[in-house]
Design a protein around this nucleic acid. Structure first.
Ligand SMILES: [Mn+2]
Ligand SMILES: [Mn+2]
Ligand SMILES: [Zn+2]
Ligand SMILES: [Zn+2]
Lengths: 121, 121
DNA sequence: GTGGTAATGAAAATCATTTTCATTTGTGCT
DNA sequence: AGCACAAATGAAAATGATTTTCATTACCAC
C-alpha cells in the first residue's frame, strides 16, 4: 500500500510551505509532468499516513499539505493588500505544549495567524 | 445586514456543542420548522460575523458551529472524538501584539487553535 | 396603499474530494 | 521471452458541502 509517489513528494518540496492537492497537480502540469489528479490525491494521503507530510485545513476548507520537516512558522497577513510576513512563534509553541499537557492531550499541533493592516495600508 | 435568524440561533443552542449547517437544517426540519437550507447558511455566517458563534472544521472539512461565550478564547480540539476545551490565551495575546508592533501592523486580530488526541482517545 | 429595500428559499452552479472501473505497469516464475 | 497476477494509474462519473442566482415574499417608511 505504498503509494507515496516520489514525484508528488518532490513537487511538494519544491513548492515550499503549504500546498493543496489541486495546487500540486497544477504545478506538475505546468512543468510538463504527466500525472492524474487522482494519483496526486492518493499520494498525498499516503504521505500523510506515513507521517512524511502534515495536513491541515485552509479557512475555506481546502486541505493543505506540508513536508513535516520544514521549518515551522506563522504568518502576519495584511487585510488590505495581502502582504504576508513570516514570523517566528516560540511563544506559541510553549503555550500549545503547556495547554496540551494541562488537559492531557498528546500528538498536538496548532495553527496561529495574525491579521491586521500593514504600514502602507 | 443582520441576518442572524433567531430560530437558527435557538436551534444551535438546543443542539448543544457543535453542529454543522446541514445538521441544524435537518434538526429544524425534524421539528417541523419551515426554513430553507440557504437561510441556515446565511444565518450561521451572520452569527459568526457578529462573534456570537464559533466556527471550526471537522477532519472531513465540514464547517461546524457552536455558541461561544462572551470572552475571547481559543480551542483545544481532539482529532479523535471532537471533544473541545476552551482555553485561555494570554500568551498568544501578548505574542500577537508584539509581532504586530514589530512589523508596523495595526488593528490586528488573530486565530489560534491547538489540536491533538485527548486522554480518552 | 405605494414604492423601495431586505429576507427567503428553490434550483442551479461550484468545487474539492472520492469512487468506479477499465487499462497499464511491474514483478516473479517457468 | 511468455504468462499470471497484483498493484498503480487516471479518466470519467458520483458525492456532498457550500455558494450563487433569481424570482417571490415580507417588512417599512411615507
Ligand atoms: Mn507554531
Ligand atoms: Mn486570542
Ligand atoms: Zn497592507
Ligand atoms: Zn478524544
Amino acid at each position: 500500500m505504498s503509494r507515496s509517489n516520489p514525484r508528488v513528494l518532490s513537487t511538494l518540496e519544491r513548492a515550499g510551505g503549504f500546498a493543496s492537492a489541486q495546487e500540486v497537480y497544477r504545478l506538475m502540469q505546468r512543468e510538463g509532468e504527466s500525472i492524474g489528479l487522482t494519483t496526486v490525491y492518493r499520494a498525498l494521503q499516503s504521505l500523510v499516513n506515513d507521517k512524511i507530510v502534515d495536513v491541515l485545513r485552509r479557512d475555506d476548507g481546502e486541505a493543505i499539505y506540508r513536508l513535516c520537516g520544514e521549518a515551522h512558522h506563522h504568518h502576519l497577513v495584511c487585510k488590505g493588500c495581502g502582504d504576508t510576513v513570516e514570523i517566528e512563534g516560540g511563544a506559541i509553541e510553549k503555550w500549545a505544549k503547556m495547554m496540551a499537557e494541562e488537559h492531557g492531550f498528546r500528538d498536538v499541533g496548532h495553527t496561529a495567524e495574525i491579521f491586521g493592516l500593514c504600514g502602507k495600508c
